[in-house]
Design a binder for these strands. Structure first.
Lengths: 356, 356
DNA sequence: CTGAAAGCGCTTACAG
DNA sequence: CTGAAAGCGCTTACAG
């Protein structure tokens, strides 16, 4: 039996001249039933070794690829994971996405990025629509979306397993991956203190992100442990944007009794402070030390480079994919066993230590 | 007839208690055939107005969402578009992705991001596998992938329509969206000349990107038009990375006869030059003017902010999605009618003009 | 260990 | 303008 496997190049025109190989073709050529091919493809047990070999050989010969849609339609799995983000162009989202993408690839899953714009009054309907029409195997989400009850409700209403990255609370609601923000912020604070700084300005982040609270707690913890006073006048609330770093930096640096160090709790705000320092012709780090948080790509694009806390974003995303693709995750009665805390790292660079 | 539409919240446990509404349910309740429901859903003609209304009402009542997999399996459309990128975490990719994502949303399409790592020896097999198993409706790709013959061959072998963003050549091979890099670079050069600069350093980009050649051509064009000499000693070849900006910037700025302005042909390299200028305590823009290219988010995170060329990346991506979702695109015998050139914009900021 | 039958939820092609 | 039948390419549930 000769099987003609013809692929016609069609260029721009999509009029299909493509012969698509199906499971039946493979079965016929291998002399087994489609069900047996299915078993081999899906790595199920109970197939005699010689048949398995035979099937695999034909699969290779025919360059067979199972149709993902057919598979999804008849089974309960789509091999599709969703990544929900409210700010897809941010460096944070990009890092998380990349980590997820790589792990998905390894697991033969694909990633669908779904931006959620909560300023759009129809966002919940749209999300429900997407989840209803595409049957994703699971969803990964980051702050602040993972702390939004309405978002979680929509996902739960669609009966979808999800994993939160750096969630704020409700530990029992799903599996999650996080990092100890408080300990990290305490470490950064101790780093500044160890350099001799006593008067340290602090820029809080967006109060909607739980990380803001934790990072502040870490700062307070370290200051108190070092018996240093915390001056409320130089503890300001920002929103994680460069703009707020600039505005609050201006406030801090134009005061007569300005701090010798500023701990901005993300790199964007730290960059804003750095810009203001440059404008004021302050030498960084000699006249002003600046600490950031996140290890965003931009933290190395500054001069001097920013001392920061490396958040293992890609690793967190990979861990989230691992949970979602774990066959036991769906059935788990609770999230115990699906909670991971990954390590952060203090990156000492030029913005706190000269020539570092 | 009472239809009980029950949705059971399942939280972590994915054991489905979800009643899924199908086209049959809608048909039964509306008193028509599934085919008629299908016609209404897909906006086909030839449905009596009252039946249409009736169907739409039931769709709303039942909160019906067509199953994307069933639809894809039986028709030739998946409503899935692919975005191929070799550097998913770059700002460029993020901007393109965001533009594509938004337009996809408007058109009820979804975007699948597929990173291609050409350093992986199996990349072509993997890509072919993805394209074979998922039947995407089309693919969007950016430099340098869109200039890689092997990549295009794999896509063409899968008989998939694709649109290139800023391709280098082979205009007839597919539809494309681009920007006039040469004109933009000429405009930036004229801007520097108009400020009185005569000795202008130039940093070329990665020779693998065709944009590098075009931007250099624009520089040459404007210099010649202004009767200014081009000194090969200060025309250096980089690779679009911050690192190369730093290295080449060091070379340019430590020379005795250093230029008064540097045109780095992307923002990352420009940022590198800016960092070196800071290190050398050169006042920017007074002692050294710096021009970038791209209007990357980082161009505004620097101090001073970078004068640059705004590349309409999101708009280009949206235009690419428009082409791919145009029913005529697939059938087009050639790409005429599917070529668009979008406008760039010179953004004058502090790195060339004080207080701009 | 293996396979025949039925079905996933839509659309296509056809008939009227 | 409308619908009954067949089929897309797999997997599930069942039988042996």
């Amino acid at each position: 039996m000769l099987f003609v496997h013809c692929r016609v190049r069609a260029g721009l025109s999509g009029v299909s001249g493509l012969t698509v190989v199906t499971i039946k073709d493979v079965a016929a050529r291998a002399g087994v039933s489609p069900k047996t091919v299915s078993r081999v493809i899906n790595g199920e047990a109970h197939v005699r070794a010689d048949k398995r070999e035979q099937v695999l050989r034909v699969v290779r010969e025919l360059d067979y690829r199972p149709n993902a849609f057919a598979r999804s339609l008849s089974s309960s799995r789509s091999y599709l994971l969703g990544f929900l983000t409210d700010d897809p162009s941010s460096g944070y989202a990009a890092d998380v996405q990349l980590g997820a993408l790589k792990r998905c690839r390894e697991r033969s899953y694909h990633l669908l990025v779904e931006p959620i714009d909560r300023a759009d009054p129809h966002w919940a309907r749209e999300l429900a629509g997407t989840l209803g029409t595409l049957r994703l195997d699971g969803i990964m989400l980051t702050p602040p979306l993972c702390d939004d009850r309405k978002v979680l409700e929509v996902i739960e209403a669609a009966d979808l397993p999800y994993v939160r990255i750096s969630p704020s609370g409700e530990e029992d609601r799903s599996g999650y991956v996080r990092m100890d923000d408080q300990a990290a912020a305490a470490e950064m604070t101790r780093h500044l203190i160890s350099l001799g700084h006593k008067r340290i300005g602090f820029l809080k982040g967006d109060p909607a992100h739980s990380a803001s609270r934790k990072r502040f707690a870490g700062f307070v913890e370290a200051m108190i442990a070092a018996h240093l006073p915390i001056d409320p006048a130089i503890v300001l609330e920002g929103d994680f944007s460069v703009r707020s770093g600039v505005e609050l930096g201006e406030t801090l640096l134009s005061a007569t009794d300005r701090p010798t160090a500023v701990f901005a709790t993300n790199d964007d705000m730290a960059l804003g402070v750095l810009m203001v320092a440059m404008k004021h012709h302050l030498n960084v780090p000699d006249q002003l030390a600046i600490g950031g948080f996140d290890d965003a790509p931009t933290s190395r694009l500054a001069w001097p480079q920013l001392t920061t806390i490396h958040q293992p974003k890609a690793a967190m995303a990979a861990a989230a994919v691992d949970m979602l693709t774990d066959p036991y995750y769906r059935q788990a009665e609770n999230s115990i066993g699906f909670r991971r805390s990954l390590d952060y790292q203090l990156k000492v660079r030029g913005s706190t230590v000269p020539d570092a």
